[in-house]
Design a binder for these strands. Structure first.
Length: 210
DNA sequence: GAACCGATTGCCT
DNA sequence: GGCAATCGGTTCG
């Protein structure tokens, strides 16, 4: 069951919290990979200095003001891609950064994609495959060409994304400050499953249940 | 058009 | 723990 648009057309903080435990699937040609979301971060609009949307819409951030439930993919440090889910009703800016996954399917594909030189390298451990926003994009084969794709299965397309709700019972979720943020560093907008061994960083001492 | 810089990662000491 | 890699987006002149 795919998460409906109404799920994403809510406040970014609520969507971020509720995405922990959801299953992300990515299809590229015949290859399908999937993982359970264990860590995300919320990025808001004008009130959030750390957000790409903080200063209003620009060519890059305009997508954050658009319809919810689509991918916002950006290129960072000239090296990596990061995957977000656009939130809030159209006209209001918001996005949730996917920071870490527990790999569920296609682990061999992920490992090959993650290798710097694909030849003669040992297979990466499961916990290394998707434990960071840049790493999981590499493992899922996601780049700027995926920007704007809906989170809805369209299996006849070359590329598609899907998000399915957490299975029962939902995981425990805690909030901490976001990683790598200078402004507004204290805002507890990072949401994660503290019991997971697939996080990008340790939970941290300031974690609070939400 | 030039300068600055980043929601990261992996390799080096 | 330090730091380079390497590019596009954004801002400033």
């Amino acid at each position: 069951m795919t998460l409906p648009i109404a799920f994403f057309a809510r406040s970014t903080l609520e969507v971020a919290r509720d995405l922990v435990g959801a299953v992300l699937c990515a299809g590229k040609g015949r290859r399908i990979v999937a993982g359970r979301i264990v860590e995300v971060e919320a990025y808001l609009g004008a009130d959030d200095p750390a957000s790409h949307a903080a200063r209003g819409p620009t060519p890059r951030s305009a997508i954050m003001f658009g319809p919810p439930g689509v991918a916002y993919v950006y290129f960072i440090y000239g090296v990596h891609h990061c995957l977000n889910v656009v939130t809030e009703p159209e006209g209001r800016a918001g996005a949730v950064l996917i920071r870490a996954l527990e790999p569920l399917a296609g682990l061999e594909i992920m490992s090959v994609r993650r290798q710097r030189d694909s030849q003669f390298r040992q297979r990466l451990s499961d916990r290394e495959l998707c434990n960071g926003p840049g790493k999981l994009c590499k493992a899922l084969g996601i780049d700027h060409n995926w920007n704007g794709l809906p989170f809805a299965p369209q299996r006849r397309r070359q590329r598609w994304l899907d998000l399915e709700p957490p299975t029962w019972p939902p995981p425990q979720v805690v909030a901490t400050p976001r990683i790598g943020i200078r402004n507004a560093a204290a805002a507890p907008y990072r949401f994660l499953n503290p019991g997971s061994m697939f996080l990008s960083r340790p939970t941290g001492r300031s974690a609070r249940s939400v």
